[in-house]
């Protein structure tokens, strides 16, 4: 709970505690009564000594494993970008708060997801960082899964388990697919998109001409203007970068249709894969999702921006978030009903 609420002290120390008997326990439970009866029947104090020590070691095993479990802490961190359906490595930090007892044979699993790792030894007041590989099934913002920590030693009679929930979220990008040809929309000749990077300043000087309305004031050639007593601009050969957008119409033909929702996911994956491919080539990519426009850019920041938007985009019903009027009827990614 974000407000600092906490559970009882046992639950706090051992969240999600569970105890599972191991095969060795059954052997012990069969042997101990036999030994006890033998000691009782014969009055042999050496057997009593053996029985006492075996009971003592049973208790000691329980105490020490509980001590180990109590002082273990774990934390997960994603490493790099996370894509749905792709193996992802998570960094696992394991800390041992015990002042004197090392933690041995600690098995860490992710709850509800694949991925586990065996930490052989964490010394007293020590820590260890390792990685494990898992996979997120769906895109979106996910809370990192809880880590289930299992301890067996010293004797392996029980498998004691706690579950440490994680506080961090991870943004899972859409699934990468080998899609077909991407449907790009060029908007460089649209006035409203011009200032979103349809033109790029710089380039070789083409000519000097008189200033016209709409020219960039930074292109004014002040010397010539002073000489000719009229505004003169430098016209350069524009390095037009392609104003390429990927456009996603997130309106579904019908609401609450599971099949359409699933197809929408495939659509998002396709767009994301196309965007990623272009961005990895160093090209500029813009994104239009419903009424939201992300200007084209390149680089890692743009990649994260575009993929992040696609990771969080949700389908809406018809008419809930129409595309900008300028893009109506253009080549966009949208789901349509098939003809029957």
């Amino acid at each position: 709970m974000s407000t600092g609420l906490r559970t009882t002290s046992f639950d706090q120390a051992f969240p999600g505690f569970s105890l599972r008997p191991a095969p060795a326990l059954w052997v012990f439970l069969v042997a101990m009564p036999l030994l006890g009866v033998a000691a009782l029947n014969t009055g042999n104090n050496a057997l009593y000594l053996l029985v006492s020590l075996l009971l003592g070691v049973f208790a000691a095993s329980g105490v020490l494993s509980r001590h180990t479990l109590k002082h273990l802490r774990v934390a997960l961190q994603p490493m790099g970008d996370v894509f749905a359906g792709s193996p992802v490595r998570l960094r696992l930090w394991v800390g041992n708060g015990s002042a004197w007892l090392p933690a041995t044979g600690v098995l860490c699993r992710l709850v509800g997801m694949p991925g586990r790792v065996l930490v052989p030894l964490v010394g007293p007041r020590g820590e260890c960082t390792t990685t494990l590989t898992t996979m997120f099934g769906r895109r979106g913002m996910h809370r990192l899964p809880a880590v289930q920590v299992e301890v067996r030693l010293p004797l392996g009679f029980f498998v004691k388990t706690v579950r440490w929930p994680q506080d961090r979220d991870v943004l899972v990008y859409p699934r990468r697919v080998a899609g077909g040809l991407a449907r790009w929309l060029s908007l460089s000749d649209r006035e409203e998109y011009r200032r979103h990077g349809g033109r790029e300043r710089g380039g070789d000087v083409d000519q000097l001409r008189e200033f016209r309305t709409g020219d960039d004031r930074r292109d004014i050639h002040w010397k010539q203007t002073a000489r000719q007593q009229r505004p003169i601009v430098v016209e350069r050969r524009e390095r037009r970068r392609p104003s390429r957008y990927l456009v996603l119409d997130r309106q579904l033909p019908r609401r609450d249709d599971a099949l359409l929702a699933e197809r929408f996911e495939s659509l998002v994956s396709e767009i994301a894969s196309a965007a990623l491919a272009e961005l990895q080539r160093g090209h500029h990519v813009g994104l239009v999702v419903g009424s939201s426009v992300t200007p084209p850019a390149a680089g890692s920041t743009q990649t994260r921006l575009v993929l992040g938007q696609l990771a969080l985009v949700r389908a809406v019903g018809p008419g809930d978030d129409p595309l900008p009027p300028a893009i109506q009827g253009e080549s966009v990614y949208r789901l349509v009903e098939g003809r029957r």
Binding site: L49, S52, L53, G56, V57, A59, A60, L64, W100, L155
Partner: peptide
């Protein structure tokens, strides 16, 4: 620690 604790309990 296991042996020592076992003796103390035993």
């Amino acid at each position: 620690a296991t042996v020592v604790l076992a003796v103390l309990v035993a």
